[in-house]
């Protein structure tokens, strides 16, 4: 369950100033300065955070960009897995919903 409500139009952001990221092969250590916690991300969740840092977007937008970056298709990474990964990132504070739309 996400920290707060979200819709398909919710814009997800990641605040790069709050993180220190170190990559070890295909594992990413992300230290969150404000919370004092360290998170281990795999290539998928790391790519979601990077994309949300570079350009915040809604679920579909981020999904398309991440799949493109990782050269994966929807069969490899179903949208349900992607959405659950976004929610997990939200729960640990690495992603935040920026705004909501009724559209």
């Amino acid at each position: 369950m996400a920290v707060g409500p979200y819709t398909s139009q919710t814009i997800w952001i990641a605040e790069a100033d709050d993180f220190v990221i170190r990559q070890f092969e295909d594992v990413y250590f992300v230290f969150c300065k404000s919370a004092g916690t360290t998170h281990l991300l795999n290539f998928l969740t790391a790519s979601i955070v990077k994309n949300a840092v570079d350009k915040p977007g809604n679920m579909k937008d981020l999904y398309d960009r991440v799949l493109n970056d990782l050269e994966l298709d929807a069969e490899d990474c179903p949208s349900e897995l992607f959405e659950s990964s976004v929610v997990q990132l939200d729960e640990v504070g690495l992603l935040k919903p920026k705004e909501y739309s009724n559209a």
């Binding site: 998170h39 998928l44 990474c77 179903p78 897995l81 997990q88 690495l94």
Partner: peptide
């Protein structure tokens, strides 16, 4: 790894 994720393995671990 993605298949494991689809089966429920967490994609984020917090230390």
């Amino acid at each position: 790894l993605l298949r494991l994720g689809a089966a429920g393995m967490p994609m984020v671990l917090t230390l």
